[in-house]
Design a protein around this nucleic acid. Structure first.
Lengths: 195, 195, 195, 195
DNA sequence: GATGAATGAGTATTCATTCAT
DNA sequence: CATGAATGAATACTCATTCAT
């Protein structure tokens, strides 16, 4: 009878938008960006093609939203380093977070590794990606410094590369022993301390 | 003029074929598979669209030929492990080969990381890729075993992941300190020995 | 607050309706019928898309209402011929009225020339337009007859065509010497008389 | 067997291109630009939709080609004024050409009057149109000068407006007495001479 | 009355592929 | 062998219109 309130509309919009993003991400991850059509996305989401354009001006903008959402989620997953009394424990917890992330957001990471590498997309996101990578390196560097390790930056770089490489392999090999590798790495880290 | 011999024809065909493969590979690397059209390839190769179909039954088959050619080239790049008396030296030399390869064939690796990740291609080559990865792990495992390290397989896995992760980062960041990272890794490997 | 009376409601409805018509007419004039969307009209009018359908059953019906409103306005603009004792003076005054109209309602005529010619509209209004044209011809014919000119109908036709052609040129050329042309025509008309 | 020659291809292209332009112009004239779809044009021309894009990059470019072709045809129809010994005869022949043009190219003129007035299109072609109009006025002015008439430019302007107005009326009224009007105008022109 | 989310038929455009010559 | 005109199925996107609230 009475028209919907602003809040009601806002809630509807949020729900629809998130639904589209989620469905599209899964499809892009599974079949690729170019091979997933707007029609397919709409069908998977049980909505009309047109609705997608109520939320995203183009397929490319939808992709952008997915990537942005993904980055935001990663940021949330990797909470700011807690200035703990025990920096080594902090680092271990950091690494565990990454692995947990790999496990719980497998679809996103698959999507991410696949999408980010496509030339046109790479061109657009190379800069933010580089920035993101630098920030991670700095963060890890600082942690290593606080443990008084020699060559903290190189140590940080190898750890970052190692983690990304594991993500990469995990996608190629669905039987990847993620937990074993995680424990091995953490074990090594702790052992070094006691050295 | 005497008619061309069977061999001459065959040679011409091969040359044409290789030319198409080379041109298409460059276009795919620069702009992606889906965003490069047969018309573009034909234009770049200075031939007609129709002629491409004399050599490849479809665009997909052309892609397949490109990938196969690429794999063959990788095989040539990575020389067979020399069974040395000093396994640790062998390993160091292996790692150095990889880094050298990264440096001298940067464009090629960029192309490969980009191409291999595209879903359609990934689907087809996930299996061979997984096999290739396994072989590398086994190879490294064996080397680690011969140095009597504990957890040789996990050690192999982390090293492989580390090397791939570095390749990944090197593509993202054109200022990547490849040499520093290489020396750091090798130095660590040797240090461990003396522990 | 007492409930609004029936009349108040009716007045509100009329005002809303007229507002929509006015906004839509401006948009159609500026950007054309097909290139102006209901969404744009609603936005320009500061109302919702749905509301437009409370007043007009379809976009086409809205157009129809605009045209009808426009015709009514034209009727108001062109005052009925004053049956003067001096038909030639009447004719001169008629012509002067048209030119004055062209000058003071330039935007309106521009809109009308543009709108009337669009096929969809033309189809609907070709008949009324033809009728309107015929009436004008008859009116002018009668005037010419009363001045005892030979071929009054053809004279009327050429005068009508001349006036429309001038309107057309005036729209194309913003520097059109409307006054000079007007004086020239009227001067000729008077001269002929004295012949 | 042997491939087609360059000339053969050129001939095919010419034929196809002209066919598309001709069919599209008729459809645009009959139903309007926006209401005629590429699919309709293709169907009317008995070709595939795709073929149209082999010749025109977009619907708008097709429209452009039609208009340019039309202008070119008009130019051919209105041959450069022959410096005759009898300028009045020249003028009569000019006028006769225009009327003949109206009759034989009715479809184009219908299209032209309808299309040119649409806002977006008008914006694009207002300038060339104005230029074209100016040229015609100058041409007619010169002719009038050579007959030693007073106010040659105004005379030229009224004649041009008259001719365009007649074109306009002819489109509105399919029973327009084109021949009568033509004879009347020419008759008047000759009479003036003898005055 | 009033809102704007949702629909779906329709549109321009692309492009791998075929084929007559 | 080689050409490029022609095809047609697929795709992204638009927009008038509906309808639950």
């Amino acid at each position: 009878m009475s028209p919907r309130t602003e809040n009601q509309f806002e809630a509807m919009r949020m729900k629809s938008r998130e639904n589209i993003i989620s469905v599209a991400m899964n499809l892009f991850a599974a079949n690729g960006y170019h091979t997933s059509s707007i029609a397919q996305i709409a069908k998977s989401a049980n909505i009309s093609k047109g609705l997608i354009y109520n939320y995203f001006a183009s397929k490319e903008e939808l992709l952008d939203a997915i990537i942005k959402t993904g980055f935001a989620e990663i940021d949330q997953m990797l909470p700011p380093v807690i200035e703990s009394e025990n920096p080594r424990a902090t680092m271990v917890s950091e690494i565990e977070t990454v692995f947990q992330n790999y496990q719980s957001n497998f679809e996103f990471w698959k999507f991410y590794f696949q999408i980010i590498m496509q030339p046109k997309i790479f061109e657009i996101y190379a800069q933010p990606l580089k920035t993101f990578l630098s920030e991670q390196i700095v963060k890890l560097s600082d942690l290593f410094k606080s443990i008084c390790v020699s060559h903290p930056e190189l140590k940080a770089r190898t750890l970052a590369a190692l983690l990304d490489g594991i993500g990469f392999h995990m996608i190629i090999d669905e039987d990847y022993p993620l937990d074993d590798v995680k424990n091995f790495i953490i074990h090594n880290l702790i052992q070094e301390e006691q050295k």
